[in-house]
Simulated assay, not measured.
Amino acid sequence: MKHYDVIVVGGGIAGMTAAIYVRRANKTVLVLEGRTYGGQIINTLNIENWPGDMGVSGVDLVQKIYQQMTELGAKMEFETVTAVERSDNGFMVKTEDETYTAGAVILAVGAEDKKLGLASEEKFTGRGVSYCATCDGAFYKGKKVAVIGGGNTALYDALYLADIVEKVYLVHRRSEFRGDAVLVERLCGKSNVEFVLGYVPEEIVGGKKVSGVRLVSSGKVADVKDGMDLDIDGVFVAIGKLPMTGGFAGLVELDTGGYIKAAEDCVTSCPGVFAAGDCRVKDMRQLVTAAADGAVAADKAVNYSNN
């Protein structure tokens, strides 16, 4: 059974940054990642808000951080964590194939795409329903699509798709977007982008593939029709994320949304377990805040493992 000073669960920006800072403290660290390292940002073609590297792609940024982490001596294993339990040496971290021990644990498990919750959504996933514009946008060249959401992800998706497709309907349940004003301004300058405000999807329709979406009033905007139909070829869902924390509900305290209760010090309700990145309660979920969390959590974890 291999022992590490710190084990990081999750190989996104927060997790890899945490590993860098643990190694800089000359402590051993293992990062356990069940999917691909880098997290959601690998699907972003052009990042404009990473300090000092405007215009870097998600893949390039992730590769740089991964290389820095591994060159410092951090280790990453592609294994899914099934349990974290207290032990005589601190904690036991179990995966599907191995069991490791650690003096401290950092949970940086991130979040996954939130679903609309429609039966038709599941039916058409992969056949006109997508959660990644940069992954699937090219399939809709010259076609009409709808983007559902009002945050930065939805705005970025609409901007990206506008350069590929014939028409983008940006559907949001409120009268104003939650995302950055500069992105809204750019979208206003796109002749093939139409804002559809005050509506939510009721049903995605089609045969073998998506052919349209039925919208109903959200009740949050005055003077809109009760419903309307859009003839489209694809639906891109960008309504937020769900924290991937379900497996740790018995270890640390979660809020009603499933996010780990941890303040800016990244300290959770379980001594020796720290939370970093999109999985913890916070006001702003950005690359820079994920990296900041990773650094803070690493400092706390190193100090804990020293005691």
Rank of each mutant, 00 (worst) to 15 (best):
I65D: 01
I65W: 03
Y66N: 02
Y66Q: 03
Q67I: 08
Q67F: 05
Q68Y: 05
Q68I: 04
M69N: 01
M69I: 04
M69T: 08
M69H: 01
T70S: 09
T70L: 07
T70Q: 07
T70R: 08
T70C: 07
E71C: 02
E71F: 04
E71Q: 08
E71Y: 05
E71H: 07
L72I: 01
L72A: 02
L72W: 00
G73K: 14
A74I: 00
K75W: 07
M76C: 11
E77Q: 13
E77Y: 07
F78M: 11
F78Q: 09
E79V: 10
T80H: 07
T80S: 12
V81Q: 01
V81Y: 01
V81P: 04
V81C: 02
V81G: 01
V81D: 01
T82M: 09
T82V: 13
V84T: 15
V84D: 15
E85Y: 12
E85G: 12
R86P: 12
R86C: 13
S87Q: 07
S87E: 10
D88A: 13
D88N: 12
D88E: 10
N89A: 11
N89H: 08
N89I: 03
N89G: 02
G90Y: 03
F91M: 14
F91P: 09
F91G: 11
M92I: 13
M92W: 14
V93C: 12
V93L: 13
K94Q: 11
K94M: 09
K94G: 03
T95G: 09
T95I: 06
E96G: 15
E96Q: 15
D97P: 04
D97W: 13
E98G: 01
E98S: 15
E98M: 10
T99K: 11
T99E: 15
T99H: 05
Y100H: 15
Y100V: 07
T101N: 12
T101M: 10
A102I: 11
G103K: 00
G103T: 02
G103N: 01
G103Y: 00
A104G: 08
V105P: 04
V105K: 03
I106C: 04
I106T: 06
L107T: 02
L107Y: 03
A108M: 06
V109T: 10
V109D: 01
G110H: 00
G110L: 02
A111T: 00
A111L: 00
E112R: 14
E112A: 14
D113T: 15
D113E: 15
D113Q: 14
K114Y: 08
K114M: 12
K115N: 03
